[in-house]
């Protein structure tokens, strides 16, 4: 099933797809996240039920907010991490009308040139120069995945893997940099 079909079935509350998705396909991923978030043995069924409730409340508002900009499983990785961190910190305010963690994009004073300089510095710190090249050409210069795959003589599928690894390395470098300089 495609991601769109899965989302449609989840929104239609298809019992089989819901069980298969949350309790079979995503089980290892969610287990992994729970292990990282909670330092005690968390009740999987209970917490997944609460995550499901969060995705489905208000006529599935959160799930409907998914716009397929990445794979569903990647989106869920972030949503679940965010949700369980919030759950742990007990900061979920159900009374609020605001959709949790949705972007507001209100800070228009964004200094793009400074940020671009920062990114250049982070790229310098990345150990794998091939990954740097992927970020530079694909993200900064806007070459398509198809063009990149052709240029690198790999299939699209493998290019997707490479760019995920490149972004993971960039993010780790950024997080270390922030820790180091206490920003």
């Amino acid at each position: 099933m495609t991601d769109r079909e899965i989302v449609e079935k989840l929104l239609a509350r298809d019992e089989r797809v819901t069980k298969e998705f949350f309790f079979v396909k995503c089980r290892p991923l969610i287990f992994g996240i729970l292990k990282k978030v909670f330092d005690f043995e968390a009740n999987y069924d209970e917490l997944v039920a609460s995550l499901y409730e969060y995705l489905m409340e208000k006529d599935g508002a959160k799930l409907r907010s998914f716009k397929f900009q990445c794979e569903l499983i990647w989106w869920l990785r972030i949503v679940a991490s965010h949700f369980f961190v919030a759950k742990r910190d007990e900061v979920i305010e159900k009374s609020s009308d605001e959709t949790l963690y949705e972007g507001k994009d209100e800070d228009q004073s964004y200094e793009e040139s400074t940020a671009a300089d920062d990114l250049e510095r982070l790229l310098e710190l990345m150990p794998n120069k091939r990954y740097v090249n992927v970020i530079r050409r694909h993200i900064l210069e806007g070459r398509s995945s198809e063009e990149m795959a052709q240029e690198m003589h790999v299939t699209i599928k493998y290019f997707y893997n490479i760019k995920k690894r490149a972004m993971a390395q960039l993010t780790r470098v950024a997080l270390n940099d922030i820790k180091k300089y206490g920003k």
Binding site: C70, Y110, L119, K163, K164
Partner: peptide, 21 residues
């Protein structure tokens, strides 16, 4: 404020230059 989807798309390498920054 970064939406979950924007962060997920960033980690998957699917964001534009401006969203990446």
């Amino acid at each position: 404020y970064i939406s979950d989807e924007l962060l997920a798309a960033f980690l998957a390498g699917n964001t534009s230059k401006s969203d990446t920054l």
